[in-house]
Design a protein around this nucleic acid. Structure first.
Length: 275
DNA sequence: TGCCAGGCTTCAC
DNA sequence: GTGAAGCATGGC
């Protein structure tokens, strides 16, 4: 067990913001996280304290980085100008949200699955994939399934993947798994590419367009300039910003604000009449 | 029951 | 180059 105080961190907001699909409520203020081939339970305590059910070494070596706890998010939020009341409300509503440093492969497949689905449905698909083709692991007496490797998914036919309720996306996942498992696309080497090159290469994968690739940049490669535009953000841009969100005003962290806007919009946030 | 969901691909034009 | 249709399935 490891107990520590963390500023500007909300488990619930981070878990429910739609950036990850295996961070689930575990009763009270606790959440379980399956990531990086590990299972973790985190509990929010009074006074900004958090209890991690892992050793101090694992916290320092794995989870501190995964939750991006060394980044000062207060700096991002305080940069929001008062002349943008909608964004100000979105940021206040999303306080404590952090952009997780997720595995690029898991992020890539998860967001291929996300197209034309809602969050509960995506979570179910991801869990189906893990239970069917992921490696069974034991975490201190609790069993869970790691996210399946590219090789494991490439070895399945699309029809077997479709058995996980992937629908027409089964072919996309299979084709992408083949490209990664064969080495045609090297997700590790792409960590050294600039944003434009990374986006370009990801868009060569089946089922990956600009939106999915942008999500992989933001959530899998921690490129905080990436700004995925989905149906919710598109709606906000159209109804609040007259066409396009001024992302150029927020160099280096527009993606953080995108996630706040997405979370706020999905939660029912709407523009005031004055906007 | 019907609409919609963190879109992408294909095919006219 | 651009716009529209088609796509599988589940949640609400």
């Amino acid at each position: 067990m490891y107990r520590t105080v963390i500023r500007d961190f909300s488990l619930r907001t981070t878990a429910e913001s739609g950036q990850c699909f295996r961070m689930l409520p575990a009763g009270g203020n606790a959440f379980t996280v399956a990531a990086m081939g590990r299972l973790l339970e985190v509990t929010g305590l009074p006074g900004g304290e958090f209890l991690f059910d892992c050793s101090p070494e694992e916290y320092e070596g794995v989870w501190r980085g995964y939750f991006d706890l060394d980044t000062d998010y207060g700096r991002f939020y305080s940069a929001v100008p008062p002349d943008d009341p909608f964004l100000s409300r979105a940021v206040a509503f999303s306080r404590g949200l952090r952009i997780l440093r997720q595995d690029p492969w898991e992020t890539l497949v998860s967001f291929i699955l996300s197209q034309r689905r809602n969050l509960p449905s995506i979570r179910r698909c991801v869990e189906n994939l893990c239970a069917s083709f992921g490696e069974r692991r034991d975490a201190g007496g609790r069993n869970f399934f790691a996210f399946p490797s590219p090789e494991a998914l490439a070895a399945q036919g699309p029809e077997r993947l479709a058995g996980c309720s992937l629908g027409y996306r089964a072919g996309y996942v299979h084709g992408t798994a083949l490209a990664v498992a064969s080495g045609r696309v090297d997700l590790g080497a792409l960590a050294g590419a600039d944003d434009a090159e990374l986006l370009r290469v990801l868009c060569t994968l089946p089922g990956v367009g600009v939106k999915v690739a942008s999500c992989v940049l933001l959530f899998g490669y921690h490129r905080l300039d990436a700004f995925p535009v989905d149906v919710w953000i598109s709606r906000v841009e159209r109804e609040v910003y007259g066409g396009a969100f001024p992302r150029e005003r927020y160099p280096g962290f527009a993606g953080v604000l995108q996630q706040c806007l997405f979370f706020y919009a999905r939660s029912g946030g709407s523009a005031p009449e004055a906007c």
